[in-house]
Design a protein around this nucleic acid. Structure first.
Ligand SMILES: [Zn+2]
Ligand SMILES: [Zn+2]
Ligand SMILES: [Zn+2]
Ligand SMILES: [Zn+2]
Lengths: 130, 130
DNA sequence: ATCATGGTGTTATAATATAACGTTTGTTAT
DNA sequence: ATAACAAACGTTATATTATAACACCATGAT
């Protein structure tokens, strides 16, 4: 629930370019790519990115400071995300595995912490590169 | 195999301060804390951090751009790391759970990717904060 | 109409990280 | 011991990533 579903102009522009991309995009690379559309400042990009993440439309790949479109449906509003990252060609795929997601969602720390969210990044070589 | 086990002066200084810290430290905060010891430039910190990570003495918390000392033995040379992160007080704990580690280490992507390494970050409220 | 909310545009600046260069130190091989 | 090599060092400069702050505008609710 809760997401307005209707994107603002800037949000739509940023989402479009991330969705069209073959791999993760960095904030400033997005910026350079949308300057023709009248977006001139980092703030405009970061604001759109923040909202898109909130909505679950995109995810941040933390180890790369880069952003990908969500291709899954299991990661409800970015509460449970997993990615595979090729260390050679930089390819990133969203790992969508119900068992894994369930396993991690129900994992609880011995120390008594109850988790709301997790992010998992796998590193290795993709099919092509190995 | 392979790690020299013997730390250089700068590496030792940086490791000491990270080990003494109660929580994750940022690179520049480390820098400010060691200027009295004659370390003046970010490069010196980042070089030490890189080596310490390679050796498995510390880990980077990617979502916070901060560094913690390794408190575990299961994460052999940082190939398999997991952390719990409190979103309120910023407390970070290394999650050391043999089952979890085994499960993830043997996880393979359907797409044919074989993983070498993973990093997992859980978010929630710690015992104190919940 | 006034208020609150959320989005926009802009300027400036903070925070994080790396490049490049030459020097020094420690280890290994002859 | 000394030459050769690798690793660590110190330094200056710069690149990259991200946020602060402020004024403006549109929408919808009271
Ligand atoms: Zn997703
Ligand atoms: Zn690849
Ligand atoms: Zn560890
Ligand atoms: Zn807490």
């Amino acid at each position: 629930m809760a997401q307005a579903q209707t994107l603002s102009r800037n949000q739509q522009i940023v989402l479009d370019i991330i969705e069209k991309a073959k791999g993760p995009l960095k904030a400033y690379s997005i910026l350079y790519n949308v300057q023709k559309k009248g977006i001139n400042a980092p703030q405009q990009i970061y604001r759109a990115l923040d909202k898109l993440i909130e909505m679950g439309k995109i995810h941040k790949i933390e180890s790369k400071n880069a952003f990908v479109a969500c291709r899954s449906s299991d990661c409800e509003i970015s509460k449970a995300t997993a990615f595979s990252i090729c260390e050679s060609c930089e390819k990133v795929d969203e790992v969508s595995d119900a068992k894994l997601s369930k396993y991690l969602s129900s994992f609880n720390h011995k120390k008594g912490m109850k988790f709301k969210r997790f992010n998992l990044e796998f590193f290795g070589l993709c099919k092509k590169c190995k």
